[in-house]
Design a protein around this nucleic acid. Sequence first.
DNA 1: TGTTCGCGCCATGTTACTTCA
DNA 2: TTTGAAGTAACATGGCGCGAA
Length: 305
Amino acid sequence: MGFDHDHICNTGLVLGLGFSAENRRPTTTTTTTTTTTIKKQINSTAISTTSFEPSLTLGLSGGGDDAYNNNNNNNNRKIIDVNKSSFQDHLHQEPHNTNHDKGNMYGRQASPHSAVSSFSSGRVKRERDLSSEEVEVEKVSSRISDEDEDGANARKKLRLTKEQSALLEESFKQHSTLNPKQKQALARQLNLRPRQVEVWFQNRRARTKLKQTEVDCEFLKKCCETLTDENRRLQKELQELKALKLAQPLYMHMPAATLTMCPSCERIGGGVGAGDVVGGAAKSPFSLAPKPHFYNPFTNPSAAC
DNA sequence: TGTTCGCGCCATGTTACTTCA
DNA sequence: TTTGAAGTAACATGGCGCGAA
């Protein structure tokens, strides 16, 4: 099938197409909007592809990737000296990110809630972010852009350099979330503000999830096609068996899966009373197959997925 | 002990800028 | 040179967990 389940797990998503769902974490969301609720419920439900209860799920794997337990990872990280002048020359100029200048940043139109958020969550939050340590970083990394020097607000958006992106990617591979210390350290290495590192990780997680969702969609499409084909094949097989039933003696009416042969007398039998018909014995040496044969796309090797 | 509040973090959606074909 | 699509940095919003009062 070529579906790399491990890859799915590594990227934080688990896809399940089967018959039972296992909640990896409780659904605690009480989001008011329907779409958000649905999505969060989807994300909160995750099962492995080896589960066979009737369900189709697509969700996050818990993964145990608790960034707060990964403080030691910083020690293993490759250090890039981002403070070299050549590196700094690549950095775009980013002003101190208070919320009042945020509104002017791209000439953005204020949302209905922006006035509130500018004070309640925006500026307050940003200022919260700027602990004394961060302010120190700010002094290093924040510079006045040419546009600002010209007095214009049309500020170019920061583009991270290859070195910055590489280090961020490497850090993301180790842990997709950062604790405050890791964020600070990374920001210092990259000569960025901690807020920028935080935003980058948020966006990176979102992109990962989006890509994984696309992969999962493709996988589900293939599964659907496979199951459709299999269903078609089984329907055809059923028709053949029905046709065979009309043309064969009574003992042959039994589906092949339910017929067994006595190893001693080598007589064919199947079902209660089958022995009476075939061998005339009161107690048949033959037995029905214990369970009907259901095709399982995950255990049947013929399944494409 | 239960409740409330503030804070920090995260997920998700959106906007706007940059790059490239 | 222009333009549209894709990528992405930054932001807005709302929810949740946690610790302190």
